[in-house]
Amino acid sequence: MKKVAISVYRYNPDVDDKPYMKDYTLEVDEKQDLMVLDLLIKLKEQDPSLAFRRSCREGVCGSDGVNMNGKNGLACITPMSSLKGRKIVIRPLPGLPVIRDLIVDMSQFYQQYERIKPYLINDEKTPPARERLQSPEDRAKLDGLYECILCACCSTSCPSFWWNPDKFVGPAGLLHAYRFLIDSRDTATEERLDDLDDAFSVFRCHGIMNCVNVCPKGLNPTKAIGHIKSMLLNRAV
């Protein structure tokens, strides 16, 4: 057995005046490389007051985005061996209001997602009898976009989103915006671009690329944002 030192951000607004870091020690099997979520579950056995979100525990649902040793990621697919340093430090995703411990209020994140109209819009008069077909090439354009699980790791690592979460759509929302902009079955491209053509929604992205660095699904929001910028520019000139 080896000892693992873990420091966790704690805040319960009902009893605490302000947030604090609580230190724990866990005994884990020498040969075992646990995921951070497993550590959190063990900690909760030790201290049932600890609160965090999780559901699928295999990187599919996007519930357990947290900040581990300074980097956002999904606790369930982050092995403890990947975290450098003598201590594991776990904090909530940065930039969003904390509800309790590692649980953040994602409302602003979802509002930005809602704003880009994340659904297919098609105004053709006669809908096809069965389904809207796409060529394999058109379908391929959605790869690298549709896989997003809305975990918010990217948007909460983006400084532009920290400073203007009410105006800048953020990497996750923009990835989805592009997903519908290039969908061959969507007919609202112009309206969608009109809604993004201000100084904040898209253009607050300065290409810092924190989003690419943290995405647990290996997606590239910066590239999608670049495509949106080109679409807006092509339309303007």
């Binding site: 053509d197 201000d198 100084a199 253009f203 910028k229 303007a236």
Partner: peptide
């Protein structure tokens, strides 16, 4: 500028 795109350009 007139729009975000205009500012950017």
């Amino acid at each position: 500028g007139r729009s975000g795109t205009h500012d950017y350009v």
